[in-house]
Design a protein around this nucleic acid. Structure first.
Lengths: 340, 340
DNA sequence: TTGTATGCGTTATCAA
DNA sequence: TTGATAACGCATACAA
């Protein structure tokens, strides 16, 4: 029985070369999948690496390649918002899954306020990361634009507001709102209200548009509309507003599920039953919130899958900075409330 | 008007040396605050750095110092749990504030399941980070113990279950529960129930103990007790249990505020008014949840401050691995519900 | 297909 | 108090 790894870390390429009986260069070539290596030599090196548990030294590699092996995960949003939103959890999980087997570091970067944003910009400019993953739904953020201008590889989750030469992934909000409306129609509801999101954000716009268009497609007049800002709390206000308006409705589509949770609470406070009196469908930005108490039918985003795609896109872009801009729009899925 | 920074990044120590009219060594000494440098030379270098916007190359530095300039933020817990818990938000904010001005990377590492944990362990063993910040309240996690054994600097948020030679910060849960009880007593409540946390976790134990002891100190008999696991959902079950038990109560202390939110919802479902029928105090692990709808009196942790302390402790430990083990216990604060 | 030699930017050792 | 100079571990241009 031999200890496979010494407690002393410093295995080097040289050591592997010695074990494999080749030169350092050959080891390096194998490590980087450089073409011109004989299968025999390649195998020799492979097993030497296997046997010693060797892992290349990031710093040394960085020094010569000018790459850091890290990518930034920038969250330019109020923390409380982000972390109370499990959407972020799934993003991180997806990104991590892609990044970990590659030995790439996912560096957490927060930019809550202007001061933090300035610091962050300075930091990113200094080449501390090879690329940046933006997980921010607030589209007014100037950071992506600046970084793109500086030619730092950048990808976004969520369609950017204005024309920006940057790849992104997004959920098909229009289709999602359509799913919600169709579900409500199937339930026989004909007076369908909505709590829409902010209209200066693409997600807010699209979900309202999807709502309106789907109703129109079925020849049904839309019910009352109130607006929130996607956050917890704003849904309650909007819900109160809808109820106060006096306009009757028997179905409700809520453009975010944090707002939907509020809506449910307010409906209950007003002694309205769900779904008997009002059938509610929420747009699911946050998986866990509804998992906890699955009282809500939701339009669910494949967030984790989206995160993986996003991360892979960034890595591609880092490899080839002149890769074409891509955008992938994922279809959401209707998840019915538990029959409880 | 001169552009302070070229678009080309690669400023080096050599360049600074040339500008300042000294040798590379002197620049390096200034950079690292090495004693033996004349004030004049130091000033020369300082201004050269200032003028050029120079930042040392991490990789080159790493290569020779054998330090990475990164610390890991390990979250060994189900994502959904963590990210639905704004406690984590404040932890990250605090850590970031300490780390950013120092140019240290906060690398996000998730260890949801066993497979991920194994991978992570391997990763950490390979010296990818200089130290590890554990933000995990689950104390059964074997990772800290293993890493401590491997002599990797480690600090914990939350007291570890068993004896472990590791520094930590924690909130004074006993005192916090006491605050809750005293508040309820001041409100004139005498039949005080509790939804306690899991008794295999220090926080769960301490909060129940604080509850019991505070009541005893005031000569009041404790009301019924039900148990949850701190998570959303478990609070609802516990609340139902309390109500089903038939034991009367007019006050309630809930050991986590996710459970407290559940409790509020269930009370409302049962047409019980808060605080008229039952006065509720939650233990606040998550600031934002209660900020959103401040319907709850809570015992609040100074999470951000704790995170700063934790991070500083880790940095100290990295500097001096033989530094004494420390533990800091922070006092929580009672935050009354809005008068709405 | 392989090996040798050079340099990446920094710290650290040694002489001056 | 300072300045040459030798590592650090790797990728790569070039020679073989």
């Amino acid at each position: 029985m031999v200890r496979p790894t010494d407690s002393t870390q410093p295995r080097t390429i040289k050591e592997i070369a010695a074990v494999a009986g080749v030169s350092k260069s050959t080891v390096s070539r194998v490590l980087n999948d450089t073409p011109g290596v004989s299968p025999k030599a390649r195998e020799l090196v492979r097993s030497a690496i296997e046997a010693t548990g060797y892992q290349p030294n990031r710093a040394a590699r960085s020094l010569v390649t000018r790459a850091t092996g890290s990518i930034g995960l920038v969250v330019s949003e109020a923390h409380a918002r982000i972390f109370s939103d499990p959407f972020f959890a799934s993003m991180v999980r997806g990104a991590t899954q892609v990044v970990r087997p590659l030995g790439i570091h996912l560096v957490l970067m927060l930019a809550e306020d202007q001061r933090a944003r300035d610091q962050l910009l300075e930091y990113l400019r200094h080449g501390h990361v090879d690329g940046v993953l933006f997980v921010s739904t607030h589209a007014a953020d100037p950071l992506p634009r600046i970084l793109v201008a500086e030619r730092l590889p950048v990808v976004l989750s969520g369609r950017p507001v204005s024309r920006l030469q940057v790849s992104y992934v997004d959920v098909d909000s229009v289709a999602g709102a359509g799913l919600a409306v169709e579900h409500l129609l199937e339930l026989g509801r004909r007076r369908i209200a909505t709590i829409a999101g902010p209209q200066d954000m693409p997600a807010g716009q699209d979900r309202l548009r999807g709502f309106t268009e789907a109703l129109a497609a079925h020849g049904v007049r839309p019910g009352p509309v109130a607006y929130g800002d996607f956050d917890r709390g704003s849904g309650a206000r909007a819900m109160e507003e809808l109820l106060a308006s006096g306009a009757p409705f028997d179905g409700l589509f809520v453009a975010s599920d944090l707002m939907a949770l509020d809506a449910l609470a307010v409906l209950r406070e007003h002694a309205l039953r769900v779904p008997e009196d009002v059938a509610v469908v929420g747009f699911d930005d946050s998986v866990a919130a509804t998992q906890a108490r699955p009282a809500l039918t939701t339009v669910r985003q494949p967030v984790e899958e989206m995160a993986k795609a996003l991360t892979l896109t960034l890595l591609d872009r880092i490899k080839d900075p002149d890769a074409p801009i891509t955008s992938r729009v994922f279809p959401p899925k209707l998840v019915r409330r538990a029959s409880t």
